[in-house]
């Protein structure tokens, strides 16, 4: 029964994708110029043309690495600083303006500023870090604050050591917040990371390839690279969320 429902849902999702592909195809036919709007098939052809080249995988690898570094750094710092902020309100008060600033400032402003301060190769790391940190910091802090106060009192009375308290009380409380925030933050990291690459043009990146495709008016390749960025983002999100779920299961075992 459940599998039939899942199948039904998947079928609906597939049909929705097919619907928009058809719309895209019709629009491309109507426009009639691949340079303005390539069709799905032309995009796919461009993708297959790019994929066998070593440079394609190098670009995907370098972009992935940069964005992953930014994400991991943001995750580590978010956990650390949110823990400090939950223990000391002054830390939270100090960090709040930075968090709000990072949330509200356009990515392009940060990219242009960062280009003055650092080499373009470091740009995607810095930008994805800036986009991810506020989301994860807010989530972790919220999770810590929502920890059951009765369990914390119990831990106090029983003199439970900090590492056990973290594992048994804090981690299960923070996990759901971190999990859903990580899902949002991964998408943000990809979008902002690629945007930073397009503006900063670090060598051998997806963003640089997108820019080159735009300059050379190879719109089909631009669409193909966009598809690569979307796919890589989805795969990265699935992998990270799977790892998080696995970590949570192992923790319980």
């Amino acid at each position: 029964m459940i599998s039939t429902m899942v199948l039904h849902k998947r079928l609906k999702q597939l049909l929705a994708v097919v619907f928009w592909l058809v719309i895209w195809q019709l629009a491309a036919q109507r426009v009639g110029y691949a340079i303005l709007l390539p069709s799905p098939l032309q995009t796919l052809q461009a993708l297959f043309r790019l994929m066998p080249t070593p440079n394609f995988w190098l670009r995907v690898g370098i972009s992935l690495l940069g964005i992953a570094q930014g994400f991991l750094l943001a995750a580590l710092l978010a956990v650390l600083l949110a823990s400090c902020a939950s223990a000391c309100e002054a830390v939270n008060v100090l960090l709040q303006p930075l968090v709000l600033l990072a949330k509200a400032t356009p990515v392009a402003s940060f990219v242009i500023l960062a280009l003055i301060w650092m080499p373009s190769a470091k740009l995607p790391i810095f930008i994805s870090f800036l986009m991810v940190f506020p989301v994860l910091y807010t989530a972790v802090l919220q999770g810590i604050r929502q920890t059951d106060p009765q369990l914390l009192e119990m831990a106090k009375v029983f003199r439970i050591p900090l590492h056990r308290k973290i594992k048994a009380i804090y981690l299960p409380a923070v996990y759901p917040y971190f999990y859903s925030a990580a899902s949002v933050a991964l998408g943000l990291a990809w979008k902002s990371g690629i945007a930073a690459e397009v503006i900063g043009l670090p060598r051998n990146t997806v963003g640089e390839a997108l820019y080159q495709a735009k300059v050379l008016l190879t719109t089909d390749e631009m669409f193909a690279w966009t598809a690569v960025a979307v796919l890589a983002s989805v795969v990265a999100e699935r992998v990270v969320l799977w790892l998080l779920a696995l970590g949570n299961r192992t923790e319980k075992e």
Partner: peptide
């Protein structure tokens, strides 16, 4: 050591 009015067990 205590048994509280509510059980206060870690649910997970």
């Amino acid at each position: 050591s205590a048994v509280f009015q509510q059980v206060r067990l870690c649910p997970s």
